[in-house]
């Protein structure tokens, strides 16, 4: 009797969930169509800002994927985005190698960097892992400045090689960032349904169960960090191309914090619309801060508080999100 009631209740839940999924999909396609047409409507500075916003959205995804699939928080992802950004910028300015080759290379370097970081930190979790990622973030500007013969130091590098010769550079910067963002969200939507994705999600909530079904928890951690590092490097690569300049000021400790805040603001979403929310937040914040000089310390404080609260409520939050989004 009671079972029957439960089943009946379920099927109606399933149906409304299905309707929500369909409307979400339509919304996403609409948003993509708008993004594709926007440069024909809005002015040049908007096109530039949106390109940077797309790149930032990729960075937000890199943090969200770590939260969603690894259950961990990073406050050091600028390290991986710097790897990607300088791969693109150095190959462009020093060797004249265009984006077609430098982006896949940036992705590969990001994955390797993620794995290299994951191995020594494989047994850390929660606040301990977050602090070790913090060390990465703090090291980035120093490393860049020390290697100034390669990185250009404080002055940075200017990325100017076109992807497709003959097409207006401002459009290229915009569409390349959009294309990579779409590719990343598509790849992540595939991951959710893949064998690897399923086992990673089990390893997040029940590592012992994942172990018992053949997925070693160390493997899961390394895989998630590799994916996350790779996506962060793509963010850096696109920041370099869409933003045209790469300098240490883009990879400060605060940039790393804001990546996490952007991920929280997008509620760790891995879809195109959610990533855009996080990306917009990240793109607007520096402008907002520079316009409001005296308020900067206060805003930093609020941001930090937000991060701490997020860290504290993360388990409950992700659980609640998993309940709502898991079927999608």
């Amino acid at each position: 009797m009671s079972d029957q009631n439960a089943t009946l209740g379920l099927s109606s839940v399933d149906r409304s969930g299905l309707r929500g999924m369909v409307s979400a999909r339509v919304g996403t396609w609409l948003l993509i169509a708008i993004a594709l047409c926007l440069p024909m409507v809005v002015g040049g500075s908007w096109v530039f800002a949106l390109g940077v916003c797309f790149a930032n959205a990729i960075g937000v995804l890199s943090v969200s994927v770590l939260v969603r699939y690894g259950g961990e928080v990073s406050i050091g992802h600028t390290f991986f985005s710097a790897v990607g950004a300088y791969t693109v910028a150095i190959l462009d300015t020093r060797y004249g190698i265009p984006l077609w080759f430098s982006v896949p290379l940036a992705l590969a370097f990001g994955v390797v960097a993620g794995i290299l970081f994951a191995w020594p930190s494989r047994r850390l979790s929660g606040i301990y892992l977050a602090v070790s990622t913090l060390a990465l973030a703090l090291a980035v500007p120093e490393i860049i400045n020390n290697a100034d013969s390669l990185t250009g130091g404080y002055e940075g590098l200017y990325v100017s090689k076109p992807l497709v010769p003959g097409v207006k550079m401002s459009l290229q910067r915009y569409y390349a960032a959009l294309a990579v963002l779409l590719a990343v969200t598509y790849g992540l939507s595939r991951l959710r349904h893949s064998r690897q994705g399923l086992t990673l999600l089990l390893a997040k909530s029940h590592p012992a169960a994942a172990d018992a079904f053949g997925t070693r928890r160390v493997w899961a951690r390394i895989a998630v960090m590799g994916i996350s590092g790779g996506i962060a490097a793509l963010c850096g690569a696109m920041l370099a191309f869409a933003g045209s300049t790469v300098s240490p000021s883009g990879f400060t400790f605060w940039a790393a914090i804001f990546l996490l805040v952007g991920s929280v603001v997008s509620v760790y979403g891995l879809t195109f619309p959610r990533a855009l929310i996080g990306g917009a937040f990240l793109t607007l914040i520096p402008q907002f801060l520079s316009a409001s000089g005296a308020w900067i310390p206060v805003l930093y404080g609020v941001a930090l508080l937000g991060v701490i609260l997020a860290g504290h409520y993360l388990p409950q939050l992700t659980q609640a999100m998993g309940r709502r989004k898991g079927g999608a």
Partner: peptide, 26 residues
Amino acid sequence: SPDLTVLENVMIGVARNHDTGWLNAF
């Protein structure tokens, strides 16, 4: 896993019999 449907949770039981590479995941 609370993130996975019942079907997906059960699919993990056969995961060890499969071995497609990472490209297939994305």
